[in-house]
Simulated assay, not measured.
Amino acid sequence: MRFPSVVFLAALSVSAIGVPVMAQEAPKAQPPVMTRPDGATVPLEVTPPPAPLPPNRVILQVGEIALTAGQLEQILEAYSEAQRVYVNGPGRPQFIQQLIRVLMLSQEGKRRKLDETDRYRNQLTYSAAGILSNHTEEDIRKKIKIDDAMLEDYLKAHPLDYMQVRARHILIRTPGSSLPLEPGQKELTDAEALTKAQELRAKIVAGADFADVAKIESNDISTNTKGGDLGFFKRGQMAPSIEEAAFALKPGEISQPVKTSMGYTVIKVEEIKPVKSFEELRPDLERNLRNELTRKYVDDLKALTKIEIDPEFAAPRKGSFPVKPAQ
């Protein structure tokens, strides 16, 4: 588990600073249980999280630097959720030792007057700018006002991202497919498989029932007995080529043969409906719209900011770069 840089931790470390009574008639709550691999059911011991420490309480003293619980909480806000869980759990001893090392060496660096060097000041400037940049982006995102009308407009502009499709398909196997050849099945060339898929599509367009043709002709053994029924799926659940074709169709429409890693597939969309209701989608819609509006704000800000880039600096460099040896 990696943690933020020494400069980051040092900068933050030195700069911040009754149970309801149940009615007698109520049934007694049953303790939680778990099932072991051998099938036995045993009580599950649930340990409540410890109470948070007072924010002004000094939790670590290293030399002249005292770190409070409140300061540590602010430092951890820069971590991902997974890192915070790790630091507050099994990684706590490792994290404490890293804090000690960072605070100890930062004080040693001051005694050596390393904080007065241009190298330190330039690196600190960029590190501090990165922290302030993150805080600014977070503040922009929080202060964006979003109402239901905006969410509805966003949903209308991105309908397929929040829809699910029920479709059927007929798959014709091609050489190299992961699908095994069935007993007595002829190995078709790529061209022959494409021709067969096109002929089957023409047969269906002329009036044949898609499900009946799929039961007889489809090489997908997981769906052919169900008339090629793929069930409902949303974006990200199917191969990209199948997904692109299916979401481009209206109910009742049939695709041209689509090439996949297993062969050529002909797709028919049966039904399209929302993944969830508007209220259920609200958190996702608000998060995605907020992210989009934040990106737009930053892009607009960039357009208004004077930016000059040295063309020689911006040009890609060829060859290797000399590495300055450590001193």
Rank of each mutant, 00 (worst) to 15 (best):
Q98L: 11
A78Q: 10
L155A: 08
D118P: 03
R173A: 12
E108M: 15
A149N: 03
P183H: 09
L103Q: 09
Y79I: 09
R84I: 05
K145S: 13
R92N: 12
L76D: 04
D118E: 15
E137F: 02
K156R: 14
G184C: 05
I170G: 05
Q164E: 11
D148K: 07
D161Q: 13
Y79S: 14
D118V: 14
G184D: 03
I75F: 08
T117K: 03
A129T: 05
K110R: 08
D147F: 07
G89N: 10
Q185T: 02
L124G: 05
S177H: 07
F95M: 07
D153F: 05
P175S: 11
D147E: 10
G89V: 05
G130F: 00
E152L: 10
I170S: 08
S127Q: 14
R168H: 14
I170K: 02
L171P: 04
V87H: 00
E77K: 12
A78I: 07
D115T: 06
A128L: 15
E73R: 13
N134F: 13
L181S: 03
A128F: 14
M150D: 08
P93W: 00
M163C: 01
N134T: 14
E77S: 12
T136N: 10
K142G: 01
D147P: 03
P180D: 08
P180V: 10
R166F: 04
N134V: 14
Y126W: 13
R92Q: 13
D139M: 15
A82E: 15
P180M: 13
A78V: 11
E152C: 01
H135I: 13
A167R: 12
I172H: 00
Y154S: 01
